[in-house]
Write a protein that binds this DNA or RNA. Structure first.
Lengths: 294, 294
DNA sequence: TCTTGACTCTCCTGTTAGGGGAGGTTGTAG
DNA sequence: CTACAACCTCCCCTAACAGGAGAGTCAAGA
């Protein structure tokens, strides 16, 4: 009979851990003195604690180890457990790879002296929603497209004030096509710039003077999108160059992290032109739908 | 102002988590209604929660994230943290690799239909100790060596009974040289089989009739050893073939897990010939000192 | 105006595998 | 006889929330 300290020394398992295993019923002392409550172990228990340690090293939980030791599992069941654990570890390793990719991306950005907060990319789901849609392009230049958009927005604001449209407050700009730098004005012509306004009712279409008929459509949900919040400082000077830069960054991020970007970018205004006249107060989220590459 | 549920939907962070971050001070609501205690968030807080999520994805702890967000760390400090985290993740991956190696080894053993409990290999430290040493080899065959050993043990038992030797109860058999199957009798001659008996006092040497002078030496500590408990069933028939088989298994295990085995194997009797006349009650631990390969 | 269901609040417990320590008892060596 | 090491039983702590109890709040429909 060995006192707990001796057993601990032989097995190289701490006394605390032996207490814990006693409590869990994983390894009960061979004998407990009923007066002093001292635990006494037998050398014959060394193989069992050895087995526990060996299984623990493989990453199994104490609960699983208890099962394997006491439930007389068949070889097939044991194989199953091991294969399952194997899959779990592979999953963990992929996760670790992902983390490494993110850290390396950050470090490269720091080397390139790109501002740190600008690249807080987060993977999200995007909800489906009903939108009033109109197109602000093709136009010869992005600036002209913006001017047109601004005019439309004014009309919309009037319609909202008149109660013709009941909107949800959600405004999304979608740039169709692969939006990426360099972005020459010759390319602008082929680009579709769609503006969406979230609407509440099941309206089918809306006619507005000066714009004509606008369609209402369902923008589908997106399972996976890389998203990025634009800081107000990015928006002080509202021009499209900033947007395109963000889109480029998102695309590079997605590729570096093993995603396949779709050929469109969305800009969701959490606080935009409908909420505030001051661009410095805008809060805009860039969203790039992607396919999970792996 | 957004209620917590809306903010949760926009950021895709659960309400529970937002509560938690509020409590930690990581993300306080922009406003709290003093009457209802309802939390209200501002869209301007979206970039912050985004940043938190992005940093969390890299595996940083909430505490570290709090520091990065609020302590205005220099670029150098941030780089340092990221490099540190990078090293941590590499460490985790090595650990995962180790676990995979162990699981794969088990699975291969199962395929080969080797008995499951036989390979609970555990890495341990071995303590230094003072031993009385004698050699039971070279002999023409292992069986003859064992016969000689048995005779010596009888003599030792007498000496112990007479109080000439004060022993610690530890008996170790060491096989010097690379013990591995196949193990032909021609090889046996070159092999050194040393038997050690742990002694308490600082005796220098001991003379015993029938054996002659035995030396006392310090067996050095071993930092890393692969160890294996022999089940009593393995010892029912005490012959060296079983020992050699275990030594072979240990050596294969060590190599498969990236360790470099030394050219000796120790067999430590936790309960051996000095404690019991019945081999079925023996508890013996095979120990193979190794160098950490990585 | 009332009610119902959806939201929200605080507080408590549980998760893993033990570590750390307080406060008290036991065993052993000098 | 007296240290001092070893042992005991509580009890609290970890990280990042999840789940649930019990109670209060809000908006819309009858």
């Amino acid at each position: 009979m060995l006192k707990i300290g001796e057993f601990s020394r032989l097995s190289q398992v701490t006394v605390k851990t032996l207490h814990h295993y006693d409590e869990l019923g994983l390894l009960k002392p061979a004998h407990i003195d009923p007066i002093t409550n001292y635990r006494f172990y037998d050398v014959e228990q060394l193989p069992r604690i050895h087995r526990i340690m060996a299984l623990k090293e493989m990453g199994l939980s104490l609960e699983q180890i208890g099962l394997m030791l006491d439930q007389e599992l068949s070889t097939e069941q044991i194989r199953g457990m091991l294969h399952f654990k194997q899959a779990e570890i592979h999953q963990e390793m992929r996760e670790a790879q992902r983390q490494l990719a993110m850290i390396e991306f950050r470090l490269r950005m720091i080397e390139a002296e790109i501002n740190f907060p600008e690249l807080d990319v987060v993977i999200k789901k995007l909800e489906a929603m009903r939108f009033l849609s109109f197109f602000a392009a093709p136009h010869a230049t992005m600036e002209k497209a913006l001017t047109y958009r601004s005019m439309v927005v004014t009309t919309l604001q009037q319609a909202i004030a008149d109660g013709v449209i009941q909107h949800t407050g959600v405004v999304i700009d979608i740039f169709h096509g692969e939006t990426i730098l360099p972005f020459t004005s010759s390319e602008v012509k082929d680009r579709q710039h769609e503006v969406l306004l979230g609407v509440k009712n099941a309206q089918e279409a809306i006619k507005l003077k000066g714009i004509g008929q606008l369609t209402i459509r369902e923008e589908p949900a997106v399972e996976t999108a890389a998203t990025l919040m634009l800081e107000t400082s990015d928006l002080m000077d509202v021009n499209l160059a900033g947007y395109v830069e963000k889109a480029t960054l998102l695309r590079r991020w997605a590729i570096a992290h093993g995603y396949k970007p779709h050929d469109l970018v969305r800009f969701l205004s959490h606080r935009g032109i409908l909420d505030s006249p001051n661009p410095a107060e805008y809060v805009i989220e860039a969203q790039l739908p992607v396919d999970a590459g792996n």
